[in-house]
């Protein structure tokens, strides 16, 4: 951090200023002139919250993607299909047993098993052939998409959260002042989104801790840096590969349940989330967990702000971020060149 500040003083000031303005926008009561220019604060705050929670969802999908890529150099273009599979599994578990929480472990385990099969029976056979692996994942995603369409039909499924999580909650953020009494109005926000966002933060922090503080994490990081050297030191690298692939796939499964609760599970969502994680990972930097978190936050916010303030070109905004990052930092914001 200090390193960055001493190397790019101007950028540091600009970034700090932007953050300060952003924080002021969130906490302050907006003067009337500002409301005239960019609309009511409630809309703005909602966009911020939606963006951040959407970023949490994107992070869940993209972190598995980036972990698998970082270790195995495998661009798993079937990641979106794993996400969708997790969503369907979650829906059926939640609706048949009535326990929403049960959907998460079941989706994690089942999708992780699919991931293990993919790693053992397909990717291990073509290790080191990046392009061929990528093509195979495209094939798998086509086949899986059609199988799921066959099995579950083209309907939209909504996973409904349990009653203790439904409904809005009061937050500490002021959206305005009541004209009659002068009371402050606080923003109401769906509990389930806040809880899920907190959960994804916990998962992210746990992942960071595992990667940076444990023996397994050390092995994974060593594998990211130099796979051959790691296996030469006697680490059972195939086991690490299978474990990471299973974990990444399982995360996609969990994300599917989350996505099904936030939005819905339907054919086509696989491509959408695959693309989202692609963009997140390109922006954040391949193979970096912090990069995935930063990228997910940026893309989530950009998508929500885009759809609120200039709806026609929301997608273009996301894309623009990607182009800018590519133009100035091809390895991604947190990536190493």
């Amino acid at each position: 951090m200090r390193d960055f500040a001493s190397r790019h003083p101007v950028w540091t000031v600009i970034i700090l200023l932007a953050v300060a303005v952003f924080i002021w926008l969130i906490f302050a009561q907006w003067p009337k002139e500002l409301v005239d220019v960019i609309g009511r604060k409630k809309v703005f705050l909602n966009a911020v919250f939606n963006g951040i929670t959407l970023g949490g969802l994107y992070f869940l999908v993209a972190s598995g993607f980036t972990l698998i890529f970082g270790l195995m150099r495998n661009v798993n273009l079937a990641h979106g299909s794993l996400y969708l599979l997790g969503g369907y599994i979650g829906y059926f578990v939640a609706s048949s047993t009535g326990f929403w929480l049960l959907a998460f472990p079941v989706a994690f385990v089942l999708v992780a098993i699919v991931g293990i099969f993919m790693q053992i029976f397909i990717f291990r056979r073509m290790e080191g052939q990046d392009l061929r692996q990528t093509l195979v994942t495209i094939g798998i995603s086509i086949v899986m998409a059609d199988l799921m369409l066959w099995g579950f039909g083209g309907d939209f499924y909504n996973i409904s959260p349990p009653s203790w999580l439904s409904g809005p909650m009061e937050t500490l953020f002021v959206t305005g002042v009541k004209r009659s009494s002068g009371e402050l109005i606080y923003l109401k926000y769906p509990v389930v989104r806040v809880v899920i966002f907190l959960a994804s933060v916990v998962i992210g922090v746990a992942m960071w801790l595992i990667l940076n503080r444990t023996q397994i994490g050390m092995m994974i990081r060593a594998g990211v840096d130099d796979r051959d050297m790691l296996s030469a030191t006697g680490a059972r690298i195939q086991l690490v590969f299978v474990g990471v692939f299973a974990f990444g796939a399982g995360l996609a499964g969990i994300a599917g349940v989350v996505g099904g609760t936030f939005q819905s599970v339907a054919p086509g969502e696989d491509i959408r989330f695959l693309l989202a994680s692609l963009v997140v990972v390109i922006v954040g930097g391949m193979g970096s967990i912090t990069g995935a978190a930063l990228g997910a936050l940026l893309i989530g916010l950009a998508e929500q702000f885009g759809s609120v303030y200039f709806p026609t070109y929301a997608v273009v905004l996301t894309f623009l971020i990607m182009v800018l990052v590519l133009a100035f930092r091809p390895q991604g914001l947190m990536g190493r060149s």
């Binding site: 661009v75 273009l77 392009l131 693309l275 692609l278 390109i282 391949m286 990607m322 091809p330």
Partner: peptide, 12 residues
């Protein structure tokens, strides 16, 4: 970018 990155960027 190179190799598989090209696929990702062009897909995006």
């Amino acid at each position: 970018t190179e190799g598989i990155y090209t696929i990702m960027i062009t897909l995006a």
